[in-house]
Design a protein around this nucleic acid. Structure first.
Lengths: 104, 104
DNA sequence: CTTGTCTGCAACTTCATGGTTGCAGATTAA
DNA sequence: TTAATCTGCAACCATGAAGTTGCAGACAAG
């Protein structure tokens, strides 16, 4: 699953979403359960979970009549590695430009 | 410089900003120069550059009467490493929870 | 069967943001 | 000094996103 990188960053660029991820770090939870712990409505949380699910950061698990969500840590790591690769590429390129600029 | 992580992601969560970064990858450039290459106004680019500068992804360099911008690749790498650390932490925690759930 | 609880959909408000145009202030070049 | 060009600021528009309330449907428990 090669998720496009930019939407993942957009998803990670929201504080509320991070607090949801943090809360899910304590263990899987449903939107209703999360609403008890966070200062936002259940529906707001549901939307955020949809966003997180779209970019593959979270996965839904049906348990009876409720839907628990689980963080997919590997997606975090994957995103990190791809970003790191880009950063390295940039350093490489900038170094090359620097050499040219210095007349080497 | 310990930039807060979330705004950096928010900055990276925009396609136009990435095309600006990509264009800057070819070498330092001013907002006006970038406006020639990208399908948006100079002022729009100026705003994006301000956002990128705020989170430390880019740095301004005065050259005569113009202001060139340069990508700071290390900030990309730094962000990547911090994200990776979080991802690893998540895996660790989830593994712990899994063990508990399996009654170990 | 009825009741409580959980999900899902829809409409609506508010506010941030990406984008625009227009103009004034520097500053280099001629 | 004058003209050309670049930056910076301000106002403005439009869209999208975060958040809310309200309601209907599903399903487990009593």
């Amino acid at each position: 699953m090669t998720t496009t990188l930019v939407p993942v960053f957009a998803a990670l660029g929201d504080e509320t979403r991070w607090s949801i991820l943090a809360a899910l770090g304590e263990g899987d939870a449903s939107a209703s359960a999360l609403a008890g712990r966070l200062p936002v409505t259940r529906q707001a949380i549901a939307k955020h979970l949809a966003v997180l699910q779209d970019v593959g950061l979270v996965e839904p698990i049906r348990v009876g009549r409720e839907v628990r969500y689980r963080v997919i840590g590997s997606q975090l790591s994957d995103t990190a590695h791809r970003l790191d690769a880009i950063g390295a590429e940039w350093d490489r390129r900038l170094a090359a430009i620097k050499e040219i600029a210095e007349g080497l």
